[in-house]
Amino acid sequence: MIRITYPLLALSLVLFFGSCGSDSTDQNTDLGQDTTEVVDDGQGQEQTYLLPSPLQIAYIFKKSGLKYVSGTTHDPKKEGNYNTTFSQSLNLGIYSSDLAYCVLNKQNNEARNFMNAVKSLSDKLGMSAVFDSESLLKRFDANLGNEDSIMFILSELQSRSDEFFADNNRQMTAAIVFSGAWVESMYIAAKVSGKGKASKLPQQLADQMGILENLLKELKNHESKDSGIAGLIGQLTEVRDIIAGIPGVKEMMESENPADVKIEATDSQLDALVKKLDEVRNSLIKG
């Protein structure tokens, strides 16, 4: 009996400890759901950076008076031009911004085309589950024209994407997607707001500096993982430096009452900024 029960006992112990052991494995894989990578400085301190949704940026721009101008968005038919994960991620972000811009400005047909582009690039990036077997797309179609419902669906799409990136440890993809979204939002704002004393562009762009700072820090966390990220950081740093050079921006960033700080850009500063955003955006959509 002893000869038989010892193996059985051993088996039960193996099974038991095996099941306990899988706990820690799960903790590191399935459950490793921080939306941004944790940076441990070795002193019991960890720092992470939250990035907003493209929908919020579009909403904030709309709230601050940005109008719809036809032809400023990217061409949704070009979604098939992107063949690398890096360019697909960037342009998923670009199309997400265009989608939000169209939805908030009640451009339903355009919005539908951008939703298709977003779906197609999401599929290519292995994110089909985010659309829940077409049901989200069907709901989107059924609710086109009802702004509240569409906003709800888009925020659900965002939350599912967040969960996907977290569940699959794809924080780097999330940061690249957001980079594309951010550049497209700034590009649209620059094209639509224009220059002159009445332009709200300096305030709108200065307001985005906090997000841009976080984005740069987050991209730096992933710099070694994809060769394209260093170039992206360089481009975004150039944009940041131009915005930071506008009188009032640095003061606003350090002020206890940032809303009271006046941002006044000269036409040549705005020209330089618009030119830089043009250049960066064009390089991103080139693929």
């Binding site: 903790q27 459950l31 490793g32 759901q33 921080d34 939306t35 941004t36 992470t48 939250l50 990035l51 907003p52 949704s53 929908l55 919020q56 909403y59 906003m151 709800f152 925020s155 659900e156 965002q158 939350s159 967040d162 977290a166």
Partner: peptide, 9 residues
């Protein structure tokens, strides 16, 4: 409206 979320383990 939902914007973003973070689960910290």
């Amino acid at each position: 409206t939902y914007d973003s979320a973070k689960l910290s383990r």
